[in-house]
């Protein structure tokens, strides 16, 4: 409840504030305003401005006054003011507002035209009218003046029209007959146009253009770049201001082609209307001529400009000299700089005065030649700058005409540096040539095989003499082929590895050992190095190959020698062992027998003495035999043994030999000698045969148990005599077979059987000397078969 009261109080307070604000606005407003009661037709409120407007002595004079007191009897339209007022108030109340003009009488009695806005304002259950007044006396005054002026103008126009209609015919004849293109227009478009104008724009009928605005018949954008509409307005304003305007205009013919024209626009007052008359001159030809002139001028200017710029900034020395006295009239910056003298001190002088030419004769020749031919090209001249440096210039000259006087245009290019560079280049070329020659000599004459190979197809593009010689094929037949086509590789896998290695090592290989085959088929070991190089922007391979076959052979030889040396060492120790055994035993027997004979000669029976003496003799012979064998081997080594064939009666010879062996071995084993189809006589070396078979048979007997038969079979096979000696002895162990023919070597299973280890060596040497072959087959514990084949 209390809140409601508070709210109302607040509202009341707000209304009061508004009311005050409104009152201030109403009273102070410069606008004349009043509040009218439409019922009583009395003012409720008027502000100061109303009082001022009506010329009231104060505001109080208007309060509760009726505006009707200030009405003239009638309004300008003749209605009674009071009636009209009532009618207007009704409309204003009905419509809510109304604007109308009203005439009032001020307090000083003068009449004042007002513009009134009446607005219905509901207030406190009634409807009031708010009135806002505006003084329109000035406007009204102007309007009345205009009306008066119009009336006078109309009168004058009427007079003129009569006058004009009289001269109309004359004027039309002139208008139509003139050769100048003329048309008339006003704001509504073209009114009249003469035949010349129609012809100019290509129209045949006046009706085609009447009513059109001149702008519609023009290029929308005029040559100056302005829009035709804008330009037309400007010219019209100009004509209006000055009576006439002259301008250029681009019109369109009826076929759409452009026609440039000069227009003289004149304003014409006709019958109170504003007309314009336009005289049009076709200026196509003039325009064209103008354009051409402009172009040619521009060209000239451009050419002149170009020449001037070229002359000024050219890096070449450029000078202009008068032909008559050869004095400089112009020189460009390059020349000034080159000469090292101010331009002022150059111009007006000739080159002789400036001491430019190294040789004056050359100068005379240059000038004379130029005068004679009118043009010189690239003449080498030696000129001196002011700094004293001498330069070689390539000078060209032409005779040109300046201001109707012949001049020389001389252009010079300083080629001193070029000359020096050329000399430098020549020198460097010579050096290069020399280096190239050196390289190519080194390449060609290199004892190492050098080749250049294109990487893309791996073909040889250059090979040196060493490679040609080694490979054994013409250079021409090597070049353009690759190593596979040439069949160089013994093993193609090596080649694949070579290229793979090369790729892995970034194109640089060092001393790879490869096996290559020459054209002759010989296989060589080469140490190959390769290096990638670029020739003509293409990858190539520079390959060096060193034939190390001989080195390899030497190495092998060395290894063999070493092996032999080692073998000799073994041989020596074997010899020592053999000697210690084979010599010590018979020596011990000889010594002991000799001592027994010496000490006990008296006690011994004669038969015992004889035994001892025989024992001494036997063992001496045994030692001698060993010596004999050793010496025999030595004679082989010394190359003293020769094959001396003679006729041998084989059966007889072998029979005797078997008997001999049986005798020396004391008949320990029987020897079964058999011949099958053997020729009676063969060509052979009896001494060698004796050695061969004595040894073999002795061995067979020695390594067999007593009583086991030894077979000795002889048969001819093909062109050979095959002799086989078969025993049933102890056999030769597998491990010893390899060393069978090595001196002093004996089987591991020989036990205490005497022997030197030289027997088979002698046999082998003899068989070899005889051109035969020997083969040993053996099985330990079963026996041995030795087969000797001798050619006959």
């Amino acid at each position: 409840m209390s809140r409601k009261i508070t709210r109302r109080k607040e509202n009341e307070g707000g209304a009061l504030k508004n009311e005050a604000r409104f009152r201030t606005f109403f009273e102070r407003s410069a606008e004349a305003m009043s509040l009218l009661d439409p019922q009583t037709l009395r003012y409720i409120e008027t502000n100061e401005a109303v009082a001022r407007l009506l010329g009231a002595p104060n505001r109080e004079a208007l309060r509760n006054a009726s505006p009707t007191e200030r009405f003239p009897e009638r309004q300008p339209d003749g209605q009674l003011s009071i009636e009209k007022a009532r009618a207007l108030i009704k409309v204003a109340l009905d419509q809510g507002s109304l604007r109308f003009e009203w005439l009032v009488r001020r307090f000083d009695g003068t009449e004042l035209p007002l513009d009134i806005v009446a607005t219905a304002v509901p207030f406190d259950g009634r409807t009031l009218l708010s009135l806002v007044y505006r003084d329109i006396s000035t406007q009204k005054h102007a309007e009345s003046e205009i009306r008066q002026l119009n009336a006078s103008l109309e009168k004058r126009v009427a007079e003129r029209t009569i006058e004009l209609s009289r001269s109309e015919e004359k004027f039309r004849a002139l208008f139509e007959g003139t050769s100048q293109a003329v048309f008339l227009y006003d704001e509504n478009g073209i009114l009249e146009a003469n035949q010349s104008w129609l012809r100019l724009l290509g129209y045949s009928n006046l009706d085609d253009v009447v009513g059109k605005r001149p702008v519609e018949l023009a290029a929308p954008i005029q040559p100056g770049g302005e829009r035709a509409e804008v330009l037309a307005k400007k010219h019209l304003a100009d004509a209006l201001a000055h009576g006439s305007a002259r301008f250029e205009w681009m019109a369109f013919r009826c076929d759409g082609t452009e026609v440039p024209m000069e227009v003289v626009l004149t304003r014409i007052q006709l019958g109170g209307r504003q007309l314009f008359q336009a005289f049009c001159n076709d200026i196509t030809v003039r325009k064209r001529a103008e354009a051409e002139l402009r172009q040619s001028e521009a060209r000239l200017r451009e050419s002149e400009e170009r020449f001037r710029t070229a002359f000024r900034v050219s890096p070449l020395n450029m000078t202009i000299l008068r032909l008559s006295d050869a004095k400089f009239v112009e020189a460009n910056d390059a020349f000034v700089r080159w000469l090292g003298l101010d331009r002022d001190r150059i111009l007006g002088h000739d080159s002789r005065e400036l001491d430019i030419w190294l040789n004056l004769e050359d100068r005379e020749k240059f000038l004379a030649e130029l005068r004679r031919t009118g043009s010189l090209r690239d003449v080498e001249c030696c000129l001196r700058s002011r700094r004293g440096t001498v330069h070689t210039l390539l000078q060209s000259a032409d005779i040109i005409e300046i201001n109707c006087e012949p001049h020389m245009l001389v252009v010079g290019l300083d080629i001193t540096q070029r000359k020096q560079a050329e000399a430098e280049l020549r020198k460097s070329e010579a050096r290069l040539r020399e280096s190239e020659e050196r390289f190519s000599k080194a390449f060609r004459a290199n004892p190492v095989q050098v080749s250049i190979m294109r990487v893309s197809d791996q073909k040889f593009i250059e090979v040196n003499d060493a490679l040609v010689q080694w490979f054994g094929l013409d250079r021409n037949r090597i070049l353009g082929r690759n190593s596979v086509e040439l069949g160089m590789w013994v093993n193609l896998d090596d080649r694949a590895k070579f290229w793979a290695d090369l790729e892995r090592s970034n194109g640089s290989l060092r001393e790879i050992e490869v096996q290559l085959r020459s054209q002759r088929g010989t296989i060589h070991t080469l140490l190959v190095s390769a290096e990638s190089i670029e020739i003509n922007h293409e990858p190539h391979l520079f390959i060096f190959a060193l034939d190390i076959t001989e080195r390899k052979q030497a190495e092998a030889e060395l290894l063999r020698t070493l092996a032999r040396e080692k073998e000799l060492g073994q041989l020596r120790s074997k010899f020592v062992a053999m000697v210690s055994h084979e010599f010590r035993t018979p020596l011990g027997i000889i010594q002991s027998s000799a001592e027994i004979l010496e000490d006990y000669l008296e006690q011994l029976e004669p038969s015992e003495r004889k035994d001892h003496l025989q024992s001494i003799r036997h063992n001496t012979r045994r030692m001698a035999a060993i010596m004999e064998e050793a010496l025999f081997i030595g004679s082989f080594d010394a190359g003293k043994m020769e094959f001396k064939p003679a006729a041998v009666v084989l059966r007889k010879f072998l029979q005797e030999l078997v008997d001999q062996v049986l005798s020396t071995t004391g008949g320990r084993c029987p020897i079964e000698l058999s011949f099958s189809g053997t020729p009676v006589e063969i060509q052979a070396d009896e001494r060698l045969l004796r050695h061969i078979f004595t040894n073999l048979l002795t061995n067979a007997v020695k390594y067999s148990d007593a009583g086991r038969a030894v077979r000795f079979e002889i048969a001819p096979v093909g062109g050979e005599i095959v002799c086989a000696i078969c025993d049933q002895g102890i056999g030769i162990p597998e491990a010893d077979r390899e060393w069978l023919f090595n001196a002093f070597h004996r089987g591991h299973n020989v036990d205490d059987r005497p022997g030197t280890g030289l027997g088979l060596v002698i046999v082998k040497r003899c068989v070899d000397l005889h051109g035969g072959k020997i083969r040993v087959e053996s099985k330990v514990g079963e026996g041995t078969v030795v087969t000797v084949r001798l050619p006959i």
């Binding site: 035993t585 027997i589 002991s592 027994i596 000490d599 006690q603 001892h612 024992s615």
Partner: peptide
Amino acid sequence: MRETLVIEPEMRRNLTTVLENRRNDMIFAG
């Protein structure tokens, strides 16, 4: 490499002879 002294029959006979004579000498002397 063998370095044994092989006592061959002849050698054995000689040694036997020498030993027998030595024994006889000793008998005669003693």
